[in-house]
C-alpha cells in the first residue's frame, strides 16, 4: 500500500498535469525517495493509484536510468564515464573503487552500504574526473581522495 505521505505527495504532482498518469514519473520519483527502489509491488501500487496498467508504467520506469528497478545499497555511487572524465583518467578511479569495495558496475556491497553505477556526463567537465554519491557531487577526484570520500558514507 502507498503510504499517506506518498499519496499526498503524488496528489500534489497530479494537480499540475491535465490527467493522472501524466504524473507517473513524479510518482516513481516520490516512491523511490521513500523506498529507495521500485519493486514490482511498488510499481503495481503506483499504477493502480494513477489508473494506468503496471505494464505501461514499467515501460516508463525502465526507460529512465535514475529509476532503480532493482534494490540499491544505502548509498549509490554514480561515476561519470563520459568523454572529459575519460580523457582525465576516470578509469583509474573506477578500478580503485571496484577494488576497494569488491564490486563491479551494477553490484551492491555485501554489507548493503554501496551500489556502484556508471553515469553519463555529470556536467562539471572542467573539474574532471567527477562522481556523485547520493546527492553530493565530488570533482577533481583522485585515487588518494577516495578513502576520505567513501568514509563519509557509513
Amino acid at each position: 500500500m502507498l503510504s499517506l505521505e506518498e499519496t499526498h505527495e503524488i496528489d500534489e504532482a497530479v494537480k499540475i498535469v491535465p490527467y493522472r498518469k501524466a504524473a507517473c514519473i513524479e510518482a516513481l520519483k516520490i516512491v523511490q525517495e521513500h523506498r529507495r527502489w521500485i519493486s514490482d509491488e511498488s510499481l503495481r501500487e503506483i499504477a493502480d493509484y494513477l489508473q494506468m496498467s503496471a505494464e505501461e508504467l514499467d515501460s516508463v520506469a525502465t526507460f529512465y536510468n535514475m529509476i532503480h528497478r532493482r534494490p540499491v545499497g544505502r548509498h549509490v555511487i554514480l561515476l561519470c564515464d563520459s568523454i572529459s572524465c575519460w580523457v582525465m583518467g576516470y578509469e583509474n578511479i573506477r578500478t580503485e573503487i571496484m577494488q576497494r569495495l569488491g564490486i563491479k558496475y551494477g553490484q551492491t556491497t555485501a554489507d548493503n552500504r554501496f551500489t556502484l553505477l556508471p553515469n553519463p556526463c555529470l556536467g562539471t567537465c572542467d573539474h574532471a574526473p567527477a562522481l556523485m554519491i547520493d546527492n553530493d557531487l565530488y570533482r577533481d577526484v583522485t585515487k588518494d581522495l577516495l578513502e576520505d570520500i567513501l568514509g563519509k558514507y557509513p
Binding site: 563520459s82 568523454i83 572529459s84 553519463p120 556526463c121 556536467g123 562539471t124 567537465c125 572542467d126
Partner: peptide, 11 residues
Amino acid sequence: DEMEPGTFKDR
C-alpha cells in the same frame, strides 16, 4: 536538461 558530454555551461 544539460547532458551533452563536455558541456557544463547551464549549470
